[in-house]
């Protein structure tokens, strides 16, 4: 194995540019180091980002956005009163990622980069309209998170690019909701998860564990944006079917996921609509 240790961000980008195909950026290690003795081999190469922790961990609020840095952990969000007050879904999702040991080490950027369809941090960021800031020695680009993934574990990130920031716009939201279904209340990987927001740009309904990537349910969002009513579980299920493709796996079944997701959204959206109707 090989571990390269950069002295700063510019050095990290230079190393990535030089050795891109053989280096995986290593942040909290909560995905990359699972069962490490069994996956350690001569071929593994890490770019260890831990020397950058001091400078690139703290989340900060700018005028128009919350900025999560490259190494901001779940616990950094949980521990920040101003962040958790203004972005309650980030808190809700962070509290559902493993337990304190994982929350202390795991990073939001790592959750995005790992690309798991079951990522708990990604639905809430996507529902908040987050942008991913990718930097390399070639320059910097911003990509909306809902256009970041190309397929299962595939993304627009080039091998020489690092996720250096996640920018979450500060918007006034009329509704916001996150719900995770796991085998138990805490310390479980998602059977499915869902985040819903509505702000001046419209509705966002984002789900995990029911498609090859975390996805927006565009057909349902369009229906809601056009003022469509929520009438039945069947109707929600039909609208979801344009965007999701759940499978049977070790944690759940396609049928369970589709059925539970439809019901969760039906009951939540009915309640949200009623609240709107009542002023």
């Amino acid at each position: 194995m090989r571990v390269l240790t950069p002295s700063g961000l510019d050095h990290a980008l230079a190393l990535l540019a030089e050795f891109e195909s053989s280096l995986t950026p290593l942040a909290g290690g909560t995905d990359l180091l699972v069962s490490w003795p069994h996956q350690n081999s001569d071929e593994v190469g890490f770019l260890d980002l831990s020397p950058l922790r001091a400078e690139h961990s703290a989340p900060r609020l700018e005028q128009d956005a919350l900025v999560l840095s490259m190494l901001t952990t779940y616990w950094d969000v949980i521990a920040s009163e101003e962040v958790r007050t203004e972005f309650p879904l980030l808190l809700a999702a962070a509290l559902k990622v493993g337990a304190v040991q994982i929350q202390s080490a795991g990073t939001w950027a790592g959750n995005i980069a790992n690309g798991s369809p079951a990522a708990d941090g990604v639905p809430v960021l996507m529902a908040y309209g987050a942008e991913v800031v990718l930097r390399s020695t070639r320059g910097e680009v911003r990509v909306p998170l809902d256009r970041y993934y190309l397929g299962y574990k595939q993304s627009v990130r080039a091998l020489d690019q690092l996720i250096v920031e996640i920018r979450v716009p500060r918007r006034k939201r009329e509704i916001e909701w996150f719900h995770k279904v796991g085998a138990r209340f805490a310390q479980a990987i998602s059977k499915l998860g869902v985040a819903v927001t509505r702000d001046e740009t419209g509705h966002r309904v984002v789900v995990n564990s029911v498609a090859p990537t975390v996805v927006r349910c565009r057909a349902l969002e369009d229906h809601l944006d056009q003022g469509g009513k929520i009438e039945s579980v069947e109707q929600v299920r039909a609208l979801l079917s344009f965007d999701i493709a759940p499978i049977d796996d070790i944690r759940s079944t396609s049928r369970y996921r589709e059925s539970v997701l439809s019901r969760l959204l039906y009951f939540y959206l009915r309640k949200a609509n009623l609240r709107k109707a009542n002023g």
């Binding site: 490490w36 890490f46 020397p51 040991q101 080490a105």
Partner: peptide
């Protein structure tokens, strides 16, 4: 395997020793 690393509880099985330098 929980230890406190820089004052936070982490699973020491998910940390390369190198990262704790």
């Amino acid at each position: 395997c929980t230890v406190l690393l820089s004052g936070r509880p982490v699973n020491s099985c998910l940390v390369l020793a190198r990262q704790a330098e």
